[in-house]
Simulated assay, not measured.
Amino acid sequence: MVVHGSRPGGERWDGVARYALLPLRVFLGVTFVYAGLDKLTDSSFLRDAGAGSVGEMMRAVRDSSALPALVDLALESPVGFGWAIAVGELAVGIGTLLGLFTRLAALGGALLSLSLWLTVSWSSDPYYYGNDLPYLMAWIPLVLAGAPLLSLDAFRRARRQGAGG
């Protein structure tokens, strides 16, 4: 059993470990900002029909998804659904990068990833070829831990503690 700080150089590694979630936060934040902006600037994505449109994508995955009812809901307004996904990805990414309401942003990212896994990438065979399940798993540490360092959440927490003490 290793006692905290008892191994050679342990204090140094414990200090570095505090930043363990930062690369994950940056990766997920940048990726979701990019995904949201990509959808918002793609002239074909935010359409009901046509190559590359959200409507065509939803119709293509409807029968192979785990939740066809969720796809049917999206197909009631494919353009509105496309906007919701794009804006949601952008908000999640910005919140994650800034570390603002990080747990809430990460929960949003996890829910987006879960819904995309159960619809769009559900039929990936083998399952690890689909990218939405690994994204779902990557969000969980941020849902649990938030952004304790280098974040607006940490800044807000420090200000509250300073004002209250």
Rank of each mutant, 00 (worst) to 15 (best):
V3F: 15
A158W: 14
L112Q: 15
S44V: 09
A138I: 05
R12K: 04
Y129I: 05
R25T: 00
G130L: 06
R159P: 02
I140G: 02
A20G: 10
S64C: 13
S44N: 11
D153S: 08
A163E: 01
R18L: 15
P23I: 09
R159Y: 07
V92E: 00
P23A: 01
Y19N: 08
W117L: 07
D14I: 14
L114A: 13
W139A: 04
S44P: 08
L46M: 11
D42P: 00
E56W: 10
G99L: 09
M137D: 09
T41Q: 08
A138K: 00
G130C: 08
L21C: 12
L107W: 00
P148D: 13
G50C: 10
L149G: 12
S77G: 00
F81D: 03
S6N: 13
G109V: 05
G29P: 06
P148E: 14
E56Q: 14
L107S: 06
Q161E: 04
V2N: 08
A74M: 07
A110G: 12
L73Q: 10
W117R: 02
E56R: 15
W13M: 08
A35M: 05
M137E: 11
D132S: 13
P126C: 05
L116Q: 05
T102P: 07
G95V: 03
G50H: 07
F81T: 13
T31E: 10
P134F: 06
L24Q: 06
D48I: 13
R103N: 07
T31R: 06
V3L: 15
S77A: 01
V79R: 12
L111S: 13
L28T: 02
H4R: 15
L104Q: 00
L133S: 05
S65M: 10
L70A: 11
A69S: 04
E11L: 15
H4S: 13
E56A: 15
G99W: 00
E89Y: 01
F27Y: 03
M137Y: 08
W139P: 03
I85E: 04
V87A: 07
V54C: 09
L116G: 03
T119S: 06
M137G: 05
V61F: 10
E56C: 14
S115Y: 08
L90A: 01
L21I: 12
D153V: 09
A147F: 05
V71P: 07
T102N: 01
V143P: 08
A74C: 09
F27A: 06
R7P: 08
T119E: 06
P23H: 05
A69R: 02
L90P: 01
V16P: 04
L104W: 09
Y135H: 02
L133F: 09
V92F: 01
L118P: 01
A145Q: 13
V33R: 04
P68T: 14
Y19F: 15
A163M: 00
L152V: 11
S6R: 10
L133P: 03
A91W: 04
P134D: 07
T96Y: 03
G99T: 10
D72P: 12
Y128I: 03
V143W: 03
K39S: 03
V54Q: 02
G109Y: 03
V92P: 01
Y128A: 07
P78H: 11
Y128P: 00
D132L: 10
V79Q: 05
A60R: 15
T41A: 03
L97F: 12
T31A: 14
P148A: 15
F155N: 13
L136G: 02
D38G: 07
L75Q: 03
L111P: 12
R25F: 05
D72H: 08
